[in-house]
């Protein structure tokens, strides 16, 4: 791993999600749960204890009929980089059970290291982290569908979206065997990206100009990785979380709903965070 780091510039995997394309069908959620061995209970209607690594929120413009407009916003883990890898959750974990990879930009979660203090959940403003309040139980026979590439999680630990990290590991092995220096764009895609029937999710290396996600987002490293695309924004950008999930919309109210603004502030223009 260290060897590769020396020869390859670091990657920064990220997403661009076009909210104007998202229909809110939920295929990304289903694909994610199925791919990542996320358990289910008979009643999942209490969304405060229902594990959905990617969750689709429904936003409205707040106007009354017939001017109401809605927008669906899929929210995976935002894989915050913060300032130099100081993401809100990684910095607070007392047992080093979650880590920011400078090689891939992915925020990991080590289930067997987590002892369930839930400080990371308190730190995450996106509610992207979920606690296993119960031991996972699969109905008889259904454990056959489990993916052997993803470890199921035991009761009492925190879990979250990993950008399907096991797929990265497999793609990396394959690339190595093929004699390729880098993982090709198509070889590593998340389950939600592939499942989206509208093609609303684009996934890839934000550092690599050949990747579609880079071309869409055009991150500006001199401006805290803000996107140069006028349609793009990030969730709660002004907190300084420096996320790697970018959202796109041509609707001003949607872009404004992505962050907290004071009444006089215009969308997309905020002062820099204090820290």
């Amino acid at each position: 791993m260290k060897h590769e780091q020396q020869h390859n510039p670091p990657m920064k995997y990220g997403m661009a999600i076009d909210l104007d394309k998202c229909t809110g069908c939920g295929a990304c959620m289903v694909a994610c749960m199925s791919e990542n061995n996320v358990p289910f209970k008979t009643d999942e209607s209490n969304k405060l204890d229902s594990i959905t690594w990617i969750r689709v929120y429904k936003l409205t413009n707040g106007k009354s009929f017939p001017d109401t407009d809605i927008c669906y916003l899929p929210r995976p883990c935002q894989h915050c980089e913060g300032h130099g890898g100081h993401s809100p959750c990684v910095s607070v974990c007392p047992a080093t059970a979650t880590d920011y990879s400078h090689e891939t930009g992915i925020v990991s979660q080590i289930y067997t290291r987590c002892f369930g203090c839930r400080y990371c959940m308190a730190a995450c403003p996106y509610h992207a982290r979920y606690f296993n309040w119960w031991d996972p139980v699969w109905p008889d026979g259904m454990e056959k569908y489990l993916s052997p590439n993803v470890s199921p999680r035991m009761r009492g630990v925190v879990e979250k979206c990993s950008f399907c990290f096991h797929r990265y590991q497999q793609a990396k092995n394959k690339a190595y065997l093929n004699g390729e220096r880098r993982v090709p764009e198509a070889a590593y895609q998340t389950a939600c990206t592939q499942a989206c029937p509208a093609g609303a999710i684009v996934f890839g290396d934000l550092n690599n100009p050949e990747h579609k996600v880079h071309q869409i987002v055009q991150p500006d490293p001199h401006n805290g990785n803000r996107s140069k695309n006028p349609r793009a924004f990030r969730l709660l950008e002004r907190l300084g979380t420096n996320t790697k999930v970018y959202y796109l919309s041509s609707r001003e109210w949607v872009r404004r709903a992505g962050d907290n603004y004071l009444a006089h502030e215009t969308t997309g223009h905020v002062s820099k965070p204090h820290h």
Partner: peptide, 18 residues
């Protein structure tokens, strides 16, 4: 804590920045 038997990880694998 969710996994009381692992409570000692806070000492053993201490993240000094937390």
């Amino acid at each position: 804590i969710g996994q009381p038997l692992r409570g000692w990880f806070i000492f053993w694998h201490a993240n000094v920045h937390s």
